[in-house]
Each structure stands twice: as structure tokens, then as C-alpha cells.
Design a protein around this nucleic acid. Structure first.
Length: 425
DNA sequence: TCTGGGGTCCTAGGACCC
DNA sequence: TCTGGGGTCCTAGGACCC
């Protein structure tokens, strides 16, 4: 029997989240901006129709926005993450095997589902809409890559009512459809690969599907060869229903204003390191190194530019925030140069292993390790219960002059007691 | 005169994703 | 004035080992 994989993808996710709590935004052009209100990262259909491009710098769009009354909101990630969790947990009821692929997408294995898959897709859409208020589209096909394409078709062709099942098409009908889609729409084919493919006559998805996989492997990469096999219905990519532990954990931010101050950089790095270490402990891992990164604003061509990073190895794997912060500050001291206006800093925890796999050495201080473990567990528990940042390192400071700008953030309706949505009237 | 071959591990950089 | 953040995988090349 042919495999059936569904890709459920939320429409204009961040904008849709905002509309759940502000129904007045329905039918209006709305965008959500990235941190520091920098770029457009989510657009309502009305905003797309006005020609607003994804990732466009917002300050360049302001004229257009004013002319058409576009509503611009700062991003509110705690709200989006919470809505996402609700959507994903609803979706899990529709299949025994679910892979949460991103904040707004989930693969479901419909293999054992006896129902008519198109009707089942409609049922998924209605349930999510009714229970969480988010519109979604569903694509169904024998491989993940084809399911992504089916979802693309479901979003484009409004006659389909939001669900597209490739398995219902005859091979000839599917090929006709694929011949009408540009090759750049395929999952994994980015803008750097498209010109190379076009140069050898591959323009449509059908062209790519019919290309010899082994020649593409030699000329491009094994990744592209796998994509071709997936387009032919062979499922090379498995459904990962348990999220694997992250192999690196990054926390980085652009500052709200440029800064030349070493103290600001130190405070920012301590804040980012603290956050990354929390994530590390959440997945029960330890890290063996920390990479520190600083840079000036590359868009300000006339300013003197500087960027540098350094990997600071630790004596052994650890999950101690204090140790990571010391290492981060040491790394910063190595790469920092005065006389520059810094725009961004970040850290990455690397060489991550499962905490249970930590090798013991002769030099381990077992008592100290126990105390560290207790301290970190307590720290996490208090911050989870009383709010992030309730207990933190002094070095993080209290002023955060460098903190990001979010001029139009909506309330955290579902995750903060004093910002709850209240029904009036 | 003349400088192997095979393997592993690590890193940097590129490309891609959302 | 103003240009996001967090990931993954692959490849090439260097260091090192026997």
C-alpha cells in the first residue's frame, strides 16, 4: 500500500495568532515584524496581495504601509509558542505518528487511517479552526517532499478548500500538475541551486522528478539526489516522531541600539548564555564548549567594521550556567576590540552530549558536581514557577540599555497572569 | 634521484529550512 | 535612525595516526 503522509501547515501563522485575540484584524492587511521591529516575518493574505515581501526591512516598507493602512505588530514569541503547542497537541489526536517539524508545521502519518484522506484533512482543518482559531492547510502524498508540495498546492488553489491529496491523482494528472510548478518551490531547493538547475534545462518540478538522480548527485550533492527520489514517491526521509536532542544551542540578538561599551556586551552575553544553558538542561544535555560571537552592523558600510568569534573549550562537559558565563566572558576578552559600535552578539553551546553519557574522570569532584546539579535544578524550578529571570547572575545587570525594541507588541494573552485575555460585555 | 595509502576526526564555510 | 533568530546537513581540507 502506498504511504500517506500529511503535512499540516498553519496559514500566515504569527498573523493568525494575533487575529485570534484581535478579531478586528480579520480582512485587514497585517504584518508581524522580527525582533527590533527589523523585518517582515509574517504577512496576512491582504498584505501579500499588496506586494509586501517576506523578510523585507520594515523601514523601507513604511510608506507603502501608511498608504494602505497596514497594521504592523512586534513579534510576541511567548504567545506564538503557546498557540503552537495547542495546535500540535490537537493534531496529535489525528495520527499515532506525528513529527512536529517547526513552530507552525507538523507531519502526520495517515498510513493506518482507513477514512477517506481528503475528508480526514477537512476534519483536521475544522477541528483546529474551531478549537484554537487558527486556519491550516493540509497536503497529503507518499513522501514528505511531495506532501510539502501538496500543501503548497492546497494553499494556492482555493478551489481545493485547503486540502490537497496527491494520492488521489493518476500519475498523468500528477505529472501535469508538477509541470506547472517552478522547481524553486521544492523543499530543499534554495535560490542558489535554482540557476544551476535551470542551466541544465530543469525548470519545473516535473523536470527535476525526471532527471537522473545519479548525475545530479555527481554534479550537485547527495541531498539533491534524495530530493529527486522523494519526488518519485520513494520515502527517503523518515518521520521523526521523537524530536532528537539539539546538537548545538544558540542564543543571539541584535541590540536595540549600537553600543561601544564592553560592559553592555558582557551583560548581553551573560543573558544569552543563561538562556542557552536553560535550554541545554531542559533536554538533559551537557556541552563541552561555548562559541562567542560579536559584530558591528554590516549594513553601515561607512562605519569601521569588525566581527570575530572564538570557540572556548571547557575542561569537560558541563551544564553549569556559571561556568559557561565565565568561559563566555573569557572568550569576549580575547576577541573584543575597542573603538567599534557593536550591533549584535551571541553564543553557541557546542559538543553537546546526553548528560547520562558524561564520562567520569579521576579528577572529578563528585561532591561539587552534586551541589552544582542541585543548584541548577533549583534555579530552573524557581524561574519556571515564578517567571523567567527571577533568579539570575548579577553580571547580567539590571539596566539592559542594549535590549531590543518592540514598539507594538500585543499582550501575552495566554502565558502571563497580568496580561490575560478577558471577555468584557 | 627519491617523499605511500588509508583511515578518522575536526573545523570552517556554504546552503537550506522556518 | 531603521536590515531577525535558531537550527540542520553536507563538503572540503587540514591534522593526525598507523
Amino acid at each position: 500500500m502506498r504511504r500517506a503522509i500529511a503535512l499540516v501547515d498553519c496559514n500566515n501563522f504569527y498573523v493568525s495568532c494575533e487575529r485570534v485575540f484581535q478579531p478586528g484584524l480579520e480582512g485587514k492587511p497585517v504584518v508581524v515584524l522580527s525582533n527590533n521591529d527589523g523585518c517582515v516575518v509574517s504577512r496576512s493574505q491582504e498584505a501579500k496581495d499588496l506586494g509586501l515581501k517576506m523578510a523585507a526591512p520594515w523601514y523601507q516598507m513604511k510608506d507603502l504601509a501608511q498608504r494602505h493602512g497596514i497594521v504592523a505588530l512586534s513579534s510576541n514569541y511567548s504567545l506564538y509558542a503557546d498557540i503552537s503547542n495547542r495546535v500540535m497537541s490537537l493534531l496529535s489526536r489525528f495520527s499515532p505518528a506525528q513529527e512536529v517539524y517547526s513552530i507552525d508545521e507538523s507531519f502526520l502519518d495517515l498510513g493506518g487511517i482507513a477514512a477517506d484522506h481528503t475528508a480526514y484533512g477537512q476534519q483536521i482543518r475544522e477541528t483546529v479552526r474551531r478549537c484554537v482559531g487558527i486556519p491550516v492547510c493540509v497536503g497529503i502524498a507518499p513522501s514528505k517532499t511531495l506532501a510539502k508540495l501538496a500543501n503548497h498546492v492546497a494553499k494556492q488553489d482555493r478551489r481545493l478548500g485547503g486540502v490537497c491529496d496527491f494520492n488521489r491523482l493518476s500519475p498523468a494528472e500528477l505529472d501535469t500538475l508538477l509541470s506547472s510548478i517552478a522547481v524553486g518551490e521544492v523543499w530543499g531547493i534554495g535560490r542558489h541551486t535554482v540557476p544551476g538547475l535551470e542551466a541544465i534545462g530543469i525548470r519545473s518540478v516535473l523536470d527535476l522528478k525526471r532527471a537522473p538522480a545519479n548525475r545530479l548527485r555527481a554534479r550537485f550533492s547527495i541531498v539533491l539526489a534524495r530530493i529527486v527520489e522523494e519526488l518519485n514517491g520513494a520515502a527517503c526521509l523518515e518521520l521523526d516522531d521523537v524530536a532528537p536532542a539539539k546538537r548545538q544551542i544558540t542564543c543571539s540578538r541584535s541590540f536595540g541600539t549600537l553600543t561601544a561599551s564592553l560592559v553592555d556586551l558582557e551583560q548581553a552575553l551573560i543573558a544569552y548564555t543563561t538562556r542557552a544553558a536553560e535550554k541545554l538542561r531542559q533536554q538533559h544535555s551537557m556541552a563541552g564548549g561555548i562559541q562567542v560571537y560579536i559584530r558591528t552592523n554590516p549594513h553601515r558600510k561607512r562605519d569601521p567594521q569588525y566581527q570575530q568569534s572564538i570557540l572556548v573549550p571547557l575542561a569537560g562537559p558541563s551544564n553549569d550556567t556559571r561556568l559557561f558565563c565565565r568561559a563566555a566572558l573569557y572568550g569576549l576578552g580575547q576577541i573584543h576590540r575597542s573603538g567599534y559600535a557593536y550591533q549584535k552578539a551571541g553564543i553557541t553551546l557546542t559538543h553537546i552530549i546526553d548528560a547520562a553519557d558524561k564520562p567520569n574522570t579521576l579528577f572529578d569532584d563528585v561532591v561539587l558536581q552534586q551541589r552544582t546539579c542541585t543548584l541548577m535544578t533549583t534555579l530552573d524550578r524557581i524561574n519556571r514557577r515564578m517567571g523567567s529571570g527571577t533568579i539570575r547572575l548579577l553580571g547580567e545587570g539590571t539596566s539592559a540599555r542594549w535590549a531590543m525594541r518592540r514598539e507594538n507588541r500585543s499582550p501575552r494573552y495566554t502565558t502571563e497572569w497580568n496580561e490575560l485575555a478577558v471577555c468584557r460585555g
